[in-house]
Design a protein around this nucleic acid. Structure first.
Length: 276
DNA sequence: AGGTTGACCTGGACGC
DNA sequence: TGCGTCCAGGTCAACC
């Protein structure tokens, strides 16, 4: 499911619901391979911890935790990390709300609410890191990267530009929808070798990636099948998609049918007139 | 080392 | 109704 705008929407809707609350207890389905830290370790770290804040790194939800140790009341910091994979949902509910199929974590808060992690396909992951370990997703945040940094990511690369945009070690947060939408806006074909883009094309792509992501965040993300934010609300950006999911439909600019091909094993949508 | 492919999962849509 | 096929927002290990 969720690419940067969807994760950002989850984080924003989650933060004001749970910041300042303490996690009292938690339940885990234990189903592999969702738990990168064992449920026992996650429970040990999050139970009794106060949520200091919630933020995003690429497609990762990062929940900042703080607790006092039992022994000498020293402050311990840790982070609870969640990646939603393809179909993950991270929602806040009231206590004892109906438990949806494929629920894998329920964290009970002292506010009386619950945080729930639901994921039918189980491509999502969750784990905890201590303050010493820290968490760093790697890659550049697409909304912060400068043009020169952006251009240098693709220099000398022989892989299709679409594959490079999806590579989280380069840019963190762009996924299949926003890669296609960005390339359309920039007028660049997805199969072009990343290293072959001119400076002008890279300029347009840098602008396009940031614009598409900002517009999608403003619309609350794209809801294709099951995406919802932490309040259970769907996003609206899917109605503004210009090529993604529109194979065979007329290009919004020139009217030619939108093409669908496969690049890097992913369905890829573009206009053969408008993209060179 | 960089690039490519298939495996990991469930479920919805579609054709017969 | 049911069965088979294909497709889906993402990674990651294993290959070339």
């Amino acid at each position: 499911m969720p690419e940067l705008p969807e994760v950002e929407s989850v984080v924003r809707s989650l933060a004001n619901q749970v910041t300042g609350s303490t996690i009292e207890s938690a339940w885990f389905s234990g189903k592999p391979p969702l738990f990168r830290s064992s449920p026992a370790k996650i429970a040990k770290v999050i139970n009794g911890s106060k949520i200091q804040g919630v933020h995003r790194q690429g497609k990762h939800i990062v929940i900042d935790l703080e607790r006092l140790t039992n022994r000498n009341q020293k402050k311990m910091r840790a982070q609870w990390i969640v990646h939603l994979g393809m179909t993950g949902q991270f929602v806040v509910t009231v206590q004892n709300a109906d438990i949806a199929k494929h629920t894998h974590v329920i964290a009970n808060l002292d506010s009386g609410r619950e945080i729930r992690f639901i994921d039918p396909r189980r491509f999502g992951r969750t784990w905890v890191v201590t303050d010493e370990e820290g968490f760093e997703a790697g890659g550049h945040e697409p909304l912060d990267i400068t043009f020169e940094q952006f251009a240098s990511l693709f220099r000398g690369r022989n892989t299709p530009i679409k594959s490079a945009l999806l590579n989280q070690k380069l840019l963190r947060g762009v996924g299949n929808i926003y890669a296609d939408e960005s390339l359309f806006r920039a007028g660049v074909r997805p199969r072009r070798r990343a290293g072959s883009l001119s400076r002008a094309e890279l300029r347009r792509l840098h602008v396009a990636v940031q614009q598409v992501l900002q517009e999608a965040i403003a619309a609350g993300g794209s809801s294709i099948s099951n995406y919802v934010n932490a309040l259970g609300e769907a996003g609206l950006f899917q109605v503004q998609h210009r090529v993604y999911g529109r194979a065979g439909e007329p290009c919004v600019t020139c009217g030619a049918p939108v093409k669908r091909i496969v690049v890097a094993g992913r369905g890829t949508h573009y206009c053969r007139n408008c993209q060179k």
